[in-house]
């Protein structure tokens, strides 16, 4: 038994250096050389400033922009660091709402949001992804239905014809991979960038 102590220390250290140092550092070097953009987080720049990541959702509140999904992320309370406050799309602290199927808080929130959206666009059914929080709180996408639902509001706020806005939604809609995997979706940030490019404010 005693002769197992030496390998317990040295084999462990050797494997630790290989898997914990050599492997991640080598992958960082290789990935940075082959896929530099993705390796750095798929950042998007406009006028030389980083405005976000193509993969990370951000909060949109203005009527002039398409809105993403609800986000339940939190941040430390500036007044009392032992508590947290709501901070939607906090990309340094991902999380979901974790509200269950019989949660009164969830039921109240759904009712309120559905009422608001119905007032905004009474002619279409409310898409479920517009009133539910995403798992990460950073979902960059909405469903095509959820984008089309917002077209009248955005067109009005920007003074654009609805058909033009609808075209932009169609251009920014990604289908399933090979028609099979995943779900059709619209990246909200890229749609809003296209919107800004089409109709500068």
């Amino acid at each position: 038994m005693l002769r197992e102590i030496r390998p317990a220390i040295l084999v462990l250290l050797a494997l630790t250096l290989i898997t914990g140092v050599a492997y991640p550092l080598a992958m960082t070097g290789v990935a940075g050389a082959i896929f530099p953009k993705q390796a750095q987080g798929s950042l998007i720049e406009r006028d030389g400033k980083v405005i976000g990541s193509a993969l990370i959702g951000q909060e949109f509140k203005s009527d002039k922009y398409f809105h993403g999904r609800l986000s339940a992320t939190l941040a430390p309370d500036p007044a009392d660091s032992s508590k947290t406050v709501a901070a939607p799309y906090n990309a340094a602290n991902s999380s979901g709402s974790n509200l269950g199927p019989t949660s009164k808080a969830l039921a109240d929130r759904l009712k309120e949001d559905v009422k608001k959206l119905k007032a905004e666009n009474p002619s279409s059914p409310v898409p479920v992804d517009l009133v539910t929080t995403s798992a990460s709180g950073l979902d960059p996408d909405i469903s095509p239905d959820a984008a089309l639902f917002q077209v009248p509001r955005v067109a009005k706020a920007r003074n654009m014809p609805e058909a033009r806005v609808r075209d932009l939604v169609a251009e920014n809609t990604q289908g399933r991979l090979l028609g099979l995997l995943g779900e059709p979706r619209v990246n909200v940030l890229s749609l809003n960038l296209a919107l800004d490019a089409a109709a500068p404010q």
Partner: peptide
């Protein structure tokens, strides 16, 4: 990484969103 996963030792990035808010990206 090809699919979009980061692999970097660089620090968190501060972005200014389209609506002008600050977003720290881990």
């Amino acid at each position: 990484v090809w699919q979009g996963m980061p692999q970097t030792l660089g620090g968190y990035v501060d972005a200014t969103t389209l609506e002008g808010a600050k977003q720290t990206i881990a």
